[in-house]
């Protein structure tokens, strides 16, 4: 089984502060990490490797320093790592990113493509599904668990707002995975020591067969109109009363705010 896992280096948003004047993230001094959902996806692939001896390739698109998460992936146990980096990719929105990634994936053998559900710096959850469309592959998003049945079938637990669905999909397909799907393993000491002796393949735009008009800023229809910090809501009121009285209070509050019709 050959698996490709798409991963992204993101700023650790638990340590992010917003510049109140410009409304943009202060990136200085913020550590970069492997995106948590991607880590969940990578762990899913590593478990398939443990059980079925799958071969894992990780790929990331980003600036040269994104190599760090590829070394981390090597330390976790992957077999091959590719860094997609080129000035021509800069300024890409989700569409241009998925075009570039899909172009790269066409050059690699795979039975299964795994990506994180969404990245914590953008929260769009679009790149995985878009990639599946470009590659004309079936896709399942919000994956919480999978089971591999021989004859190329996956049984998939997909999380929904109400609960979950059990689905079956034939490989090759694209899964976008939740961080909560698995508890990610630790890098091993020997994995870390040997990670830096391994080859990280660096691919530029010339390495993929995608029209340059579809890459980077040129290939990005999305324009950011304005970014701002969400205003803080005032503190809520707390009523510690019996259920019956609570219902009365809720009803009168809703009437006050015209959520339900005042009589």
């Amino acid at each position: 089984m050959k698996i490709i896992v798409c991963i992204k280096q993101v700023p650790d948003t638990t340590e992010i502060r917003i510049n109140p004047e410009t409304g943009t993230m202060i990136r200085d001094g913020v550590p970069s990490i492997m995106n948590p959902d991607d880590k969940g996806g990578l762990e899913m692939a590593l478990r398939l490797k443990d059980e079925f001896n799958a071969h894992i390739t990780v790929i990331t698109m980003g600036p040269p320093q994104a190599e760090n998460i590829l070394r981390e992936a090597y330390a976790l146990g992957v077999d091959r790592a590719i860094l997609l980096t080129d000035r021509k990719f800069a300024g890409a929105d989700t569409l241009a990113t998925s075009n570039a990634l899909a172009g790269a994936l066409r050059n690699i053998d795979y039975d299964l493509i795994i990506a994180g559900r969404q990245a914590i710096d953008g929260d769009t959850a679009q790149v995985g599904p878009q990639m599946a469309e470009h590659l004309q592959l079936p896709q399942v998003s919000y994956v919480a668990d999978i089971h591999y049945n021989q004859n190329n079938l996956l049984t998939i637990k997909k999380e929904t707002e109400e609960g979950y669905q059990m689905l079956e999909a034939e490989m090759p397909c694209v899964l976008t995975v939740l961080a909560s799907a698995n508890i990610a393993r630790y890098m091993t000491v020997s994995g870390i020591i040997t990670a830096f002796d391994k080859d990280v393949e660096v691919w530029g735009a010339d390495k993929i067969d995608v029209d340059e008009a579809k890459l980077g800023l040129k290939g990005s229809p999305t324009r950011v109109k304005k970014s701002f910090t969400k205003g803080r809501k005032g503190a809520g009121e707390v009523f510690e009363v019996e259920a019956e009285e609570a219902v009365g209070i809720i009803i009168s509050k809703m009437k006050e705010k015209f959520i339900i019709k005042p009589n």
């Binding site: 330390a75 000491v189 020591i193």
Partner: peptide, 15 residues
Amino acid sequence: TNREKLFLQMITDFA
């Protein structure tokens, strides 16, 4: 070194 930094990341997480 980069190797030591990655090691530190792992051991901090573990600790």
